[in-house]
Amino acid sequence: MNLGIEGIMLLGALVGFATTYQTGSLWLGVLAACLVGILAGLLMALMTVFIGVNQHVSGLGVTLFCTGLAYYAFRVIFGTPANPPQIQPFAQVEVLSGVSILGTILRQYPLTYYAILLVPIVWWVLYRTSFGLKIRAVGENPEAADAAGINVYGVRTVALMISGGFMGIGGAFITLSALGFFTFDIIAGRGWVCIALVIFANWNPIRVLWGSFIFGGVSSLQLRLQLTGINFPYEAFLVLPYIVTIIALTIANRNAAYPAALLKPYKRE
């Protein structure tokens, strides 16, 4: 479990933004965010896979490190500007424009489409390729996987690096697509929501997709409610993903599909 996600997303958001600011290329920004995420994943692997430190604590350490680094780097690069520096974010892509409701729903950022496309790819890799089989084997029973000739350290490291890259891009989506600027509280617990989401979805990529639609829907619903000006504590909606996850954890705990070796560092004797 990588609790570094909150910080890695923030670092990805910053690196993506700064790269685009300097080069003018949005896709270079995405690439840079991905690379820094991979590096952060490697750091996580160094701590938990090779040295064998407790995953929660080192994950939080990675989050604190990446958060501090992102703030520090922002100040070093941009100083303390009166107005946040801006970039021209990704434009939304029109698919089936003109078809009234469907057109509105499908008008999305390109990264959103890639993210949705990623879901079946990740599912296919995890459940239909030998690499995916190795990942799952290492997650369920590292001893047996090792005996079967799988390089447990290697597989875990690669998995952490890939997921770090995704986290970096996820953070960059916020600066490069949704906002076009960087502020300090930009991630605001979204990383923790992702952890919640994965548990809520029982580690299944397809269910993660549905879960993220639900969580995203709740969040945009509260924005709409705020805009209507109805005096309603919008915090009640923002808090829902967390509460739902705690409840889901409680109900699902008896049959949760936790990977058996979750949180267990593996040491070859």
Binding site: L43, V53, V57, L64, F65
Partner: peptide, 13 residues
């Protein structure tokens, strides 16, 4: 904050 977090990771390791 960077120093604190680095210190935490190094100590753990």
């Amino acid at each position: 904050q960077v120093v604190q977090a680095t210190l935490m990771l190094v100590t753990l390791g």
